[in-house]
Computed example of a mutant assay.
Amino acid sequence: MSDRRLRSARAVYPGTFDPFTPGHFDVVDRARRVFDHVTVVVAVNGEKRPSQAAAGRAAEIRRLLPAHWENVTVADWRGLTVDYCREHGCGVIVRGVRNAADYQREYELAAMNEALGVATLFVAARPELAAMSSTAVRARKTPG
Rank of each mutant, 00 (worst) to 15 (best):
R10F: 02
M112E: 06
H88Y: 10
R105I: 05
M112Q: 10
R78E: 14
A131F: 15
R138T: 08
D18A: 01
E128T: 06
R63N: 07
D76Q: 04
G56N: 12
N45V: 06
T120P: 06
V82S: 05
R78M: 05
S51N: 08
V42G: 13
G46P: 15
M1H: 03
R86I: 01
T135S: 15
E87G: 02
R10A: 04
A131I: 02
V92Q: 00
D29M: 04
A115H: 15
W77H: 14
D3H: 08
M112C: 09
R126M: 11
A53I: 02
T142R: 15
G79T: 07
R105D: 10
E47L: 14
A110S: 15
A54Q: 02
L116S: 12
A125L: 11
A124K: 02
R78N: 13
G96S: 10
P19V: 02
Q52H: 09
G46Y: 14
G23K: 12
C90Y: 01
W77C: 02
R7D: 01
G117C: 10
A136Y: 09
A125C: 14
A115T: 07
D18T: 08
R57P: 03
G15Y: 03
R86G: 07
R7N: 11
V40S: 08
E87I: 00
P19G: 03
D3N: 14
E128R: 12
A139M: 05
L64W: 13
C85T: 01
P19S: 08
F20M: 02
P14H: 09
A130P: 06
A100G: 10
E106C: 07
C90K: 04
A55C: 05
L65I: 05
A139W: 11
I93Q: 03
A75L: 00
L64A: 13
D83C: 06
V38A: 08
F25D: 13
P50K: 05
A9N: 05
A75D: 15
N45W: 04
R86M: 02
A9Q: 14
L116C: 08
G89P: 02
R7G: 03
K48S: 01
L6K: 12
R95P: 06
R57Y: 02
R32G: 00
F25I: 00
R63D: 14
G23H: 05
V94R: 10
R140L: 15
A130K: 12
I93T: 02
A111S: 09
D26V: 01
C90D: 01
R126D: 04
L116E: 08
A58R: 03
D102P: 07
F17T: 04
A131L: 11
F20G: 03
A67H: 10
T135K: 12
A9R: 09
A136K: 12
R105P: 00
P143D: 14
W77P: 08
S8D: 09
